[in-house]
Computed example of a mutant assay.
Amino acid sequence: MKKIKNNLLLIAVIFLLSLASNSVFAAGAEHQAFVSEKDTTSQEKVVCYEVFGMDCPGCQSALEKQVKKIDGVANAKASFKEKQVIIELKPGAEVTEKEIEERIKKANFTPGKKIELSKNEE
């Protein structure tokens, strides 16, 4: 009986680990899909910021709406799972870090540090 319980526990742990790894890979794929949507012929710039305080899809949506209001922002994609927002700027746009941080605060979240994206992500 004890051996059966141990085997069931092992199966449960493996199942939970596989679920956790799938969500991590899905979040990474979502980020890559957003970055890949860009038109590669234009000169858009993509920036990413840590954001603290998001803990649901509604938070994500609220932050995206606020950031998209900035003049010069072409698109924004927030992720409460990754605790970040990826912002695509229009070609030639002059958007300051202060403007972005103010919008994050206006959406009632705490801005973190700017995350540098690697060249293959841009």
Rank of each mutant, 00 (worst) to 15 (best):
K2H: 07
K3G: 13
K3C: 05
K5V: 14
L10S: 10
I11N: 01
A12D: 05
V13R: 12
I14W: 07
F15K: 06
L16I: 04
A20C: 03
A27N: 13
E30M: 12
E30N: 14
H31Q: 11
Q32I: 11
Q32E: 14
Q32D: 15
A33N: 10
F34K: 05
V35D: 02
D39L: 00
T40H: 11
S42V: 01
S42I: 00
E44L: 03
V46C: 11
E50A: 08
G53D: 02
M54I: 02
M54W: 01
D55W: 01
D55E: 00
P57V: 03
P57S: 10
Q60R: 04
L63A: 05
E64W: 12
K65D: 09
Q66T: 07
V67S: 12
K68S: 06
K68H: 10
D71Y: 11
N75R: 10
K77W: 05
S79Q: 08
K81R: 14
E82K: 10
K83V: 04
Q84I: 02
I87Q: 08
E88V: 05
P91T: 00
T96F: 14
T96V: 14
E97C: 06
K98Q: 06
I100G: 08
E101D: 14
R103Q: 12
K106D: 12
A107G: 07
A107R: 01
F109N: 13
F109Q: 10
T110E: 06
K114E: 13
E116H: 07
N120H: 12
E121T: 04
